[in-house]
Structures are given as structure tokens and as C-alpha cells.
Nucleic acid binder design. Structure first.
Lengths: 141, 141
DNA sequence: GAGCAATAATTGTTGACGTCAATAGTTGTT
DNA sequence: AACAACTATTGACGTCAACAATTATTGCTC
């Protein structure tokens, strides 16, 4: 029997858990969780997105998006607007408060990554990042 | 503002999720879930462990360990033995069936890893694995 | 232009996961 | 002997993700 961490897949699972916990720890005080934060960050790059786009690009189930956007609306960080050309769709957009919130937590991601990748020097981090991106390529935005 | 996918930490989180799901898919037929599998793999390296060791090393809550070991006992893959020096503790150890099961599912991990790391050639996989190991070094079993 | 398949958002359900609080039994200390 | 600390356990609660089903709307097609 090989060692516990002989499998790269298992390692990824364990490290992913740790990473998610770290993110949520950093975000805890702000009242949002990791998935809300992912939505906010995506909205910041897109100037408004349909919910189905959020679902596809973030890899969350459409039904999950509903609740996340609900929460963000309650917090005043995002709002739903009717889509001009399709009355089925809603366009989700950041509010001013949402942008301000993102500016305030700008470094959260960096801090998590720094704490997580502490044992790695910058070159290693770059290598790791590009490898992960290649794995994530299909299916993950 | 960049998308969260630019953060290595978030990528790890997403890929860890996907990896865990793949594991659960492969394990489904065997009647155990990923966390059982993690316990079994740990036991295989340790020749018997206290439940609190399992909790600490795997990062699962002590109350979660109880249920997992219960299940493994029912399946005949592990057993609780009294700790000789402390009647509060139980030593959890693999049974012969447990070892046989692990041998049988040895390839599950490989299949998951193969599917997950499909875009990477062998050299890249080796690089990724060693990087992940270095990150996992502290705190992870 | 009426009928029908496909799509967007939503609701509800289920299961795996994770955390927390409380308890009983045991140990070690003072 | 009294008390704090520790081990396993139980139970409650909330998070997270996958799936099926529903409603409203759109586009196709015939």
C-alpha cells in the first residue's frame, strides 16, 4: 500500500478543502462566504451578467446562483435588472456598495494564496498556477 | 479587478471539489465514500491509530470520525480495539478485509488522477505532484 | 399563426460535508 | 478527595452540491 498522499487527485482534494476553509475564514467577518465572493469578483469583470452566465462560468448549479444572488441583493452588493431582449433572463450587476466591498476585500484572495503557498517561491507559484489552470481548463471557467 | 480564477487558492478550491466528486463517483459502487476511503488509507500507513489521531491528521471533526469508523466496522474493513494504557481511547486498525479492499481500489485513485490530470503529460504531473506535496507538508497528514 | 421543443430562472428535495454544544467515562493533578 | 483536562460519543444545525420538476418565455416549424 502506498502512502496516503501518493495520489495527486487525493492531494488536490485535501488542499482544496484547506483552501476553501482559509477563504471562508478571511471572509467570515464580511458576512459573505466564498461562493458569494466568487460571484462578486466575476461581476466586477463583466459589467453585468445573466444568471446562466454566472452558472456556466463559475461552475455553480443554476439553482445555487439564485440563492447567492438573493443574498447579495439583501446585502445591497448586487441587483437584478430585467434583460432588455429576453424577459426570462435577469441581468445581475454590482452596486456601488458591491464595488466598495470588493475594494475593501481586495487582498483577501492574495492573503489566502500567500498563506497557502508559503513553502513555495515565486517561480514555483507561477508553475503551480499554470499547471492548475491547464487542469481547470475544461469545465471550469 | 480580476476574476477569482486568477487566484491560485481559489483554483485549488475548485479543483479539490472536482477531485472529491470524482473520487465519490468511483467509490460509489464499493459502498464507501471519500471520507471512509481517507480513513482507510491513513490506517494502512499507521498500523492502528487512536480516533483522536485520525481526527487530527485527517482534519475531520472527532464526531465525524465516530460515524466513519462505525461504518467501516459494519463493513468489516476496520475494528476498534481497546487501548492498553488508556481506557478512554480506542485503537482503530484495518482488518484483513480492509486491506484487501484497499488493494482492490488501489486503482480508483489512479483512475481519478488520470481523468483529472488528463491535459498534463507525465513530466508535468510529476512537477505538480511534488509542488502539492510541498504545500501539503505542514498540517496535512 | 398554432403547436411545440428549448431555454432562464426558480423551487424543492436529497445527500455529503462540516461545525458546534453537551454528555459520560476516564485520567492526571493538586 | 476534588477538580480540571481529555476521549469518544450523541445530537442539532447549517453549508454545499447534484438533481428533478415547475413556471414563464422564446424560437422553431409546419
Amino acid at each position: 500500500m502506498r502512502g496516503l498522499h501518493a495520489d495527486t487527485g487525493y492531494l488536490l482534494y485535501r488542499l482544496g478543502l484547506r483552501s476553501g476553509q482559509l477563504f471562508n475564514t478571511f471572509l467570515q467577518e464580511s458576512g459573505v462566504r466564498l461562493r458569494h465572493y466568487a460571484v462578486l469578483r466575476f461581476l466586477a469583470t463583466s459589467e453585468g451578467a445573466l444568471q446562466r452566465e454566472l452558472s456556466a462560468r463559475l461552475g455553480y448549479d443554476p439553482s445555487a446562483i439564485v440563492g447567492l444572488v438573493d443574498d447579495l441583493e439583501k446585502l445591497g452588493f448586487a441587483e437584478r435588472r430585467p434583460a432588455p431582449d429576453d424577459r426570462r433572463s435577469r441581468i445581475v450587476a454590482l452596486t456601488q456598495d458591491g464595488r466598495a466591498f470588493l475594494r475593501g476585500t481586495d487582498e483577501a484572495g492574495l492573503r489566502v494564496t500567500n498563506e497557502l503557498l508559503d513553502p513555495l517561491d515565486p517561480a514555483d507559484r507561477e508553475t503551480l498556477h499554470s499547471l492548475l489552470r491547464r487542469i481547470a481548463q475544461d469545465g471550469l471557467a
